[in-house]
Structures are given as C-alpha cells and as structure tokens.
Amino acid sequence: MKKAKSTLSSVLLVCLSLIWLSPIYIILANSFKSRDEMYVNPLGMPVKFSLEYYSGAMEKMNFLRAFGVSLVITIVSVAIIVVLCAMAAWMMARSDGKLSKAIYYTLILTMLIPFQTLMMPLMQEMNSLEKLLGFQIKDTIGGLIFMYIGFGAGMGVFMFYGFVKGSLPRTLEEAAIIDGCNTWQLFWRVVFPLMKPTIITLVILDVIWIWNDYLLPSLTLKSASNRTIPIGTQIFFGQYTIEWNMAMAALMLTIIPVVVFYLCAQKHIVKGVAAGAVKG
C-alpha cells in the first residue's frame, strides 16, 4: 500500500514536471515546422525534421560569434571577480582597521541599489572617462567586463568575508607563516584552495547572472560584432513581422547550451544556488 502510494506520487511528479517543461517542447517542435504546418498543427510533433530554420537562424544572429562573445565575457568576468573578491575579502576579514570595516559595509550596502538607479549616470560617467583617458570603453568587451567586476564585487566580497570569518581557522594561517610562507604564497597555497565551496557557489551564481544579463549589454554594446546571446536573440523579434520558425530555432539555439551546462554541472548548480541563498 505504502509502496503503491509512493509510486503513484512519483508518476504524478514526473507528469507535472513534463507539463512544467512543455513550453520548451512547443518551441522545439515548432522550430522544425514550416509555416503551413505550424498553422494546421500548432502543438503536435513535426512531420519531418528539417534543419533549415536552424541554419538560417545561426546565420542571421551570427550565432557562433555571439556565443564566443558571451563565453569570453562570462568566463573572464567571473574569473576576475572570484580572484579579486577572495583576496579583498580575506584581507578585510583579517584586519581590524576601521578603514576595512568601512569598505566592507559600503560594499554590502550598495548591493541594495537597483541597476536602474545607476544605469544613466554610469553611461554618462563612461562617456566622460572615454574623453579623459582617450580610449573606448563603451561598446567594447573589456569595458563591459570592467563593469561586471564592479557590479559583482559586492556579493563576492560578502560571501568570501563570511567564509573567512566563519570557517577559516586563523591558526592554520599562523602555522603556514611559521613554516615560512609569505602573504602571496599563503593566499594561493592555503587560503584560496580552502575557499573551494564558496568559490563554486559564487561561480554558479555569477555565471547564471552574467550569461543571461540583458540590460547592461544592451546599453553598452552597440555594434553587431559585439552582440551577446540575449542581444542577438532580440533581432528576431522586430516590431511588426516575426518569422516565427526562425525565431524559435534561435530560441532553441540559446536554450541548448544552458541545458548542456546544467546537465554537466547539475549537482554543483543546485548546491551552489541553495548555498548562495543561505549566505545571501
């Protein structure tokens, strides 16, 4: 009896999950259909699988280029955020000065500021910086990465600071110093490896954020060669006519890498998201 109940519950859960994901199925099924077929058969499986719309969509949004841009921006930003925040948080947590307390609390408080409050002055500031320094910042990948580091600093420092204060024993560092470690070695050989759980959490949260971010790149990246994946998808959804078959192929193209990433790192992602929330 109990077993039957639990099997029933399992079956129901799987049904619910499949219904939950049905929107993705609808996009997938329709990305293979011609316009006429879509019209008579909007929900069923396609009759034949033609990849015509996929190749069209890939060409139109310059998928490989956009994928590369997104990948570079995400990887470089996240790597720099992790290393810089780990260093900064460690130093701040280990010093008792008033200055480091002040910096720490500024970082935490600014996490509350919505991006919409900063976007216009940020763009103006970048304009005047460009004039002052004489090189381009807006519409460059480096400039965007620079801004992501700034926006990611608050949460990164917050999480590492909590880890150092909470679960990194000071005695361990003292022992390493007695063994002849200098600060640089101490960080890379002792502190950084021990931070691994926090690093994984932060990487997962920041990757999800930066890969999917839309507003900041839409404000800074104007030229076609710098399009990220979300910005590239936008070109399929014009004001008046939408070529739905191609648009859906494009949506699938953007969803597939995310699914692959998820399947590869599912355990870490679920753990990271849960841990990130508890710390945040």
Partner: peptide, 14 residues
C-alpha cells in the same frame, strides 16, 4: 577601482 567607478560614483552622480 571597478567597484568605485561602476557603483559608488554613479550612485552619487545619479
């Protein structure tokens, strides 16, 4: 520096 330039300065400028 990125943090100061992207968050703190724009906030006050804003």
């Amino acid at each position: 520096i990125p943090f100061l330039l992207t968050v703190v300065v724009p906030f006050f400028q804003g």
